[in-house]
Design a protein around this nucleic acid. Structure first.
Lengths: 205, 205
DNA sequence: ACCTGAACACCGTTCAAGT
DNA sequence: ACCTGAACACCGTTCAAGT
């Protein structure tokens, strides 16, 4: 018992255990109905123990959302690396990765983007994490412009366009608004590629 | 007292009064923290009275969300009518109207799209109301194709593209994710027009 | 330093009872 | 038919107390 085992239950890194417990409950309970007391129970501590590690429930939820933003940033970075020097394909794959994440973790998406958390509470998380994801997108655009593949001009508005398109599709799919159009995972991913293509080539004749 | 006044407080149309009370509380309390007991108090009835008119809290929230979908559908219809036979301008104005609604009612957007309600609970509302909004969009596309302004081809994917773009931008703005790029209402509306333009003309050279 | 248990002010929901 | 009040099983949060 010199450290090879977590000494007992309540010890080690309760903060991390609480985050882990909350993430495990998220898919079944839903972002809107996650209870701090149940998280504590799953972590094996009393319902007041979390207050030594988080100021309140919102602080715990923010910590969870942060892991979601990290996941999102990482998926996008992987996509960019795998399609080196093909900005067109990068944009299509980025949209697909975004939709993929929503399919896999709908309740995490609601937590990150559904207004569960106050905007101010997420401020720091956003500035650091979701800005990174956006910067990745902007780099794809700027690179594509340098290669002469994309139109020159307002790179920021191009990046916001791509982000909005992918984000909107992901949210509409997650909320079930497009279930008449795409129900299976494969249909959803196909739709994300088609939409990215539409943004690339435009719909004007 | 032959009908010119609502007989007393608890009478007339409590169902409508409850919906009205809930809508009035929505902006300040937030979709995530609206309490049925407080709605009842504002409506001037006991906290159990709502159960004569709604099966549960979710049913009340669904009724509120439905008014949101009606508002959305109506704004889009107005836009279409005001820009008759100019599908390009219709698409730009539709995006702007969508963003406008989000600016005016952020908590309503969270209620409609933020995962507060179960998908099944919204099923009927969606089939009837948000399908209408989408049908309006599709009509813009089909009309534009008939006029030779838009590319021929998959009109449905064009409509979903426009919807996703507007929806994503609105949600990102509402959640504060784009506050470094657009903070004032005018900047947000400008951004919506720019993005619609990007979708129209494409970003590929 | 870290955790517990009692306590408080809230919830949503059910049900017998009142008019 | 419609509404009320008590009751139940939950919440988030605070605080004195334990180790």
């Amino acid at each position: 018992m010199t450290g090879s085992e977590k000494n007992t239950y309540h010890h080690g890194d309760l903060r991390a255990s609480l985050i882990q417990a909350a993430i495990s409950l998220l898919p079944t309970k839903g972002a809107a109905h996650l209870s701090l007391r149940e998280v504590a129970k799953v972590a094996g501590v009393s319902h007041t123990a979390p207050y030594r590690h988080f100021e309140d429930k919102a602080a715990l939820l923010t910590a969870i959302a942060q892991t979601g933003f990290e996941q999102l940033t990482q998926s996008l970075l992987e996509v960019v690396k795998k399609q080196q020097n093909d900005p067109e394909q990068q944009l299509i794959s980025a949209a697909e990765a975004y939709v993929d994440l929503g399919i896999a973790n709908p309740e995490m998406m609601y937590l990150m983007f559904g207004g569960v958390l106050e905007i101010d509470s997420l401020s720091k998380t956003f500035s650091e994490k979701s800005a990174n994801a956006f910067t990745g997108l902007e780099q794809i655009i700027i690179n594509g412009q340098a290669l002469g593949i994309f139109k020159s001009g307002d790179s920021q508005s191009f990046a916001v366009s791509a982000w909005s398109l992918a984000h909107g599709l992901m949210m509409l799919l997650t909320a079930g608004q497009l279930r008449d159009i795409a129900s299976s995972s494969e249909q959803k991913k196909q739709l994300s590629r088609t939409l990215a293509q539409n943004l690339l080539t435009g719909i004007l004749k």
